[in-house]
Structures are given as structure tokens and as C-alpha cells.
Amino acid sequence: MEVITIEKKTFEEMTAKFDEFVHWVERICHQNDEKGIGEWLDNQEVCQLLNICPRTLQTLRDNGTLAYSQIHHKIYYKAGDVQCIVSVVGNKRKEAGFRNKTI
């Protein structure tokens, strides 16, 4: 094991800078909370809310209709974004139903 020594003044400066960084991150997090970023939903929740299958959800992501964020292999959606496309999905469902009817 290697031991490294530093002056007390240098150590105190480093800890002060680290404390500044921590306060900066906390301030940013607090500002974002105030903006009402809202709840994030996963694939299963969005499929249930929109009454669609996972493949349809994939299509909505692929064609840019629904914005998403990915952390590792998990995909999340803002509740507000999902709410905005409820009418889009409903209209597509009506169009598909109309086209499938035979007269």
C-alpha cells in the first residue's frame, strides 16, 4: 500500500472545494424539484396507460412520437409526455378501426 501525505492547508482546500461541489449539486437538484419534473414511467406502465402492446410502444419511440430516457437497459418516460400522446394513440386506433371495417 502506498501512503501519500499532503499539507494540512492543501487538504482543507480540497475538502472546501468538495463541499462547494456538494452544495452546487444539491442546489441543482432542488431547482429541478421546483420545476415539477414529475414522475417517470417504465414500459409496462406506459403500455397499460395507453392500452398498447410493447411493440407499438417501440414504434412510438422509433418514429419520435414519444420521448424517452434510457438508463442502462431500462427505458423511462415522463408522465407529461405520455399524457400528450394519448390523443395521438386514440386517433390512430380510430383510423385503424375505420380501415378494417368492411361495408
Rank of each mutant, 00 (worst) to 15 (best):
V88T: 14
I103A: 13
Q44H: 13
I103K: 11
Q70C: 05
C84Y: 12
Q83S: 11
E7Q: 15
D33M: 04
A96K: 06
A79K: 06
H72K: 07
G90F: 12
F11E: 01
D33P: 01
K9M: 03
I6R: 10
K101L: 01
E12C: 07
Y68D: 00
S69I: 02
V82R: 00
F21S: 07
K74L: 06
P54S: 15
F98V: 00
E7S: 15
V86N: 04
K92L: 11
E7I: 09
K17A: 05
F98K: 14
V86I: 05
V86Y: 15
V46P: 05
Y77S: 01
V86P: 12
R55T: 04
T65H: 10
L50W: 10
G38A: 14
F21N: 05
N63W: 10
H23L: 03
G80D: 07
I75F: 07
K9R: 12
K94M: 02
I4M: 04
D62W: 06
E20K: 11
N32T: 04
V3I: 02
I85F: 12
Q31R: 12
I28G: 06
C53G: 15
N32L: 10
A67P: 01
C53E: 13
C84A: 13
N100Y: 08
T59W: 02
E34R: 09
I103G: 13
Y76M: 01
P54H: 12
E45W: 01
G97E: 12
V25T: 03
E39Y: 08
E13F: 13
Q48A: 15
T10E: 15
L49N: 10
N43L: 04
H30I: 00
Q31A: 10
L49M: 13
N51L: 08
T10K: 12
G64D: 08
E20N: 12
L50R: 15
Q44L: 14
Y68W: 09
Q48P: 03
F21K: 04
C47F: 06
C29Q: 07
G64I: 14
I37G: 07
L66E: 00
D62I: 10
M14N: 07
N100D: 05
I52R: 08
W24T: 00
G38V: 09
K94P: 00
V22F: 02
C53R: 15
C84N: 13
E2Q: 12
L57M: 03
C47Q: 11
W40G: 02
Q31F: 03
F18S: 05
T102W: 06
N63P: 11
N100E: 07
I37F: 04
K92H: 15
T102H: 08
E45L: 05
F18K: 14
Q58E: 08
T65D: 06
E7H: 15
V82I: 00
